[in-house]
Design a binder for these strands. Sequence first.
DNA 1: TACAGTCGGGG
DNA 2: GTGTACGACTGTA
Length: 766
Amino acid sequence: MCARVRGWLLDLYEDASDGLCLWFITETGARLRLKQKMEVIFYASGESEQLRALWKFLRRHSEVLDLQRETRRDAFIPEPIVVLKAVIDSPVNETRLFREVQQRFPRLTYYDSDISSNIRHAARYGTFPMAFCDIEYDDKNSIQSLKTLNSRWDLSPVLPVLRSLTLEPDCDPTRNEPSTISVQFKQRKQTLSLKSAGELIHRLNGILHEIDPDLILTSWGDTWLIPQLLMLAEKAGEKLCLNRDERRGVRWQKALTYFSYGQIIYRPEEAHLFGRCHIDVRSAMMWRDYGLDGVLESARVTASPIEKAARVSPGSGISAMQMLTALEKNILVPWHKQQVEAFKDGMDLIHRDRGGLIYQPIVGLHTDVAQIDFISMYPAIIIKGNISPEVPLPNGIVPASDELGVVPLTLKPLYEKRVALKLRCGQLKKNSRLAKRESARASALKWLLVVCFGFLGYKNARFGRIEAHEAVTNGGREVLIKAKEVAEAMGFEVLQLFVDALWLKKKGAVTKDDFQDVLAEISAQTGLGVSLDGVYRWVAFLPSRTDERIPIANRYFGVFQDGTLKVRGIEARRRDTPPWVAETQTSMLACLSRAGSVNDLPAAIQNAFSVFQNALASFRAGKVPLEKLVVTARISHELENYRSPTPGARAAMQMYAQTGKRTRPGQKMRFIYTCGTPNVRAWETAGQIKFEDIDRMKYTELLARAACSVLHPFGIDDLQLKKWAHTATIDLELNLPRKGYRVRKIFNHDRPLGVTGAAGTGGYIA
DNA sequence: TACAGTCGGGG
DNA sequence: GTGTACGACTGTA
């Protein structure tokens, strides 16, 4: 007897007795659990004696269904190699057996041995989270046949309506003790008291049973709520049914400190569920930035579980995609050894890499300027140049072979989908609900594109190769120089080059049309897509703060013709700037952006200055809320390892001394600058800080600094402004120093040290 | 004054 | 299940 349904794949995980467990949301809205047997294959190569020994060893095991000698491609070896192919009856058995094999035969090289079941299933059946499938299953709920009816690359997939339940405590548990939790489904919201464990767990189970959610969205679920609920359940002697698969408990992923994107990151423990997804919206960075649409998009294209896709782990998503590509292309996937030791001390530097090209900006205020960006430059170069570890590298961006390698093959559909989504965003009504959703999806894809480039240069990546990484940055510099030549030949002045962007100036060029020809020509000459980021009413490039004669790349702000601001590198963009300073600076910039043209700028500058004055006055009057003064800084060492503790580290030490709560490397520390010793106060233990305790000098200095950045291009002297900030009284009528701030318009300083340098490594001199 | 520690970037 | 790098800048010793 066979039943047949169509439905969306929600969850897939390994199961010791059933092989795989799959959850579907059927067309009729049922939530269906099915099981499926899946054979798993791994390969070994090496000395023939060793291989023979392995063959003998595996032959004895009943879970090994088949052993074969085959010839296959290793991505890093030009000629096909001889391998032993082992077919195992289930994923769980394969994991267990391989662990033993690898210990007994460490000298062999292994392939396809540590690929997740999600990826194996994706390679075999074309599945992914939210894939729409046609399934036949027997009376024991065993899948007999499974067909995927759509693809990861569909632009407008039809999705089921997901039921999401939101759980959150009534306050931030890192600061206070919550007394209730709120439970929300659609518009229905109820509050449950944490006081009585028995009643709470009982009611929660009732709700979970009644609603049967697909998603459980929590605040602090990973670090506080779920551990707390489990503890209360134990206390009450009742099982808490968080999973849809009631045979399972919560799967905990341990907390982890790791190094990524130049920073030490702390990833707290995570609570994963079976048959439904738990997402802690406070810790899932991906969720904060892109919401459900971005998360589902990312899960879809990477064929990774939704819970995993929600928590930003850039590497594993792209790594999963590359493995899937390799499986589909019949290329062996090298076994990824856990090189923990090597990671800690052997962060081998890439000395030959010279990073992206920079052409220092011409400091000062400019009009008749447009910014032109290459669209996803590095991914585009990888695709166009066919840059992959296993194929010959290109000359510039002219490919050396026709057959696409694993990396470009992985990137191409991703790149094309993102371009298509962006295109569609452009056609939708700006800021409409749909436009926002589509752009969230496009943003999620952007992350994957960026990380794919990074992975080429990462020695622990399966498909990484330093030379390939270099070939990409090489290509980038070549393309940017070409673009500069094209622009100059067409009579444009190049104000700044930055890795994948150009700032072009030509007298009288003030509309998008004025830049269409140069755009088209750059695109034609380089063979890559470029887009006009915008035409500026005016843009100001800032010099170094320590030496006014030195221009600083990518420290600028400007206003486009439509009035939107573009701001880079200044205080408001930094994560360690207190909100009060960032908000004041942003308001000042907003004043400037309201000037319709440079002629209106003097008045706008006066307004911006008033914003600054008012902010100072309200600070002196004690009217700035404390939380607006909180500084957030990352802790990157164990506290005892600091040789000269940063303010953040001092606050962390203070908190540790007072409460015993330790700040781990990668965690953020929030604090306030105070008078006396120590000069900081941890926000978590701040209690009620009195107004007199606040280090007013410090905050005045921080605000003045931010104001200087904004006003500097208009000829306002930093020192004078700071002096004024520290000495002026609150009384606006006494505003004498203002007389000293006559606005001068400064256009086009001479290029002080007109040299080129490099972003990232090396210092590239063109 | 030296230098240790943190941030940028993308959206 | 982890991109790399340097340069600018700040705060401490």
